[in-house]
């Protein structure tokens, strides 16, 4: 069968397979040498850690760095310091904010806990978000443009392709609760 194909068809098949299969074979995290961002001619490149060497050992995720950073932190895979010198006890706020103005799609539950595990209150308040719930005019359009949540999500925290992680509270839940249905 394969031998009956013309040389050009065989070449095209080979090319397609190579283009799509090689990145998969090479692993999820490309070595710096071939990431098309680092200069492969840099003589010091070999001294830098490749992403896969560190990230392949952390809990997996399907987006961003393909690392579940929250689990990595909570389960002790990593112990990132909280200050430059020393390691002060950080203030963790375990409080969720429910955002209701989402139309017909599931509402947003914003959990303070994982955010305060990484960030200080001042990183978000009062510059990006007012402390008073409901006082900040957040829209999905603004987030996609890199404002509000989009300052981090889509740039460094899990990307905006992961709708359900924020839009996680279906409207039916509340209807069920109010109707007394378990």
């Amino acid at each position: 069968m394969y031998k009956r194909l013309t040389a050009w068809t065989r070449y095209t098949l080979w090319l397609v397979c190579t283009v799509f299969l090689l990145p998969v074979l090479a692993g999820d995290w490309l070595p710096l040498k071939i990431d098309q961002l680092h200069d492969p001619d840099n003589p010091a490149l070999g001294l830098l850690q490749n992403p896969g060497d560190a990230l392949s050992r952390l809990p997996a995720d399907n987006a961003g760095n393909e690392v579940d950073w929250i689990r990595a932190l909570e389960n002790g895979y990593i112990r990132p310091r909280s200050e430059l010198h020393g390691d002060k006890q950080v203030e963790i706020l375990d409080s969720d904010i429910l955002m209701n103005k989402t139309g017909s799609i599931p509402r947003v539950r914003f959990p303070h806990k994982p955010h305060t595990q990484w960030l200080d209150c001042e990183n978000c308040h009062e510059k990006l978000f007012k402390s008073q719930a409901g006082a900040t005019p957040i829209t999905m359009g603004k987030i996609l443009e890199g404002e509000y949540c989009g300052v981090c999500h889509g740039a460094v925290a899990f990307p905006l392709t992961e709708c359900n992680r924020c839009h996680s509270v279906p409207w039916e839940d509340e209807a069920s609760v109010q109707a007394g249905v378990p």
Binding site: P51, R81, E83, V90, L119, D120
Partner: peptide, 24 residues
């Protein structure tokens, strides 16, 4: 590389203590 640094330091160290604005 953010990934390399966040393994070792929480976001707050650079973005609060060192004064890096959270915007490239």
């Amino acid at each position: 590389p953010h990934w390399f640094h966040r393994v070792r330091y929480q976001c707050r160290v650079c973005h609060s203590e060192l004064g890096f604005e959270m915007r490239a």
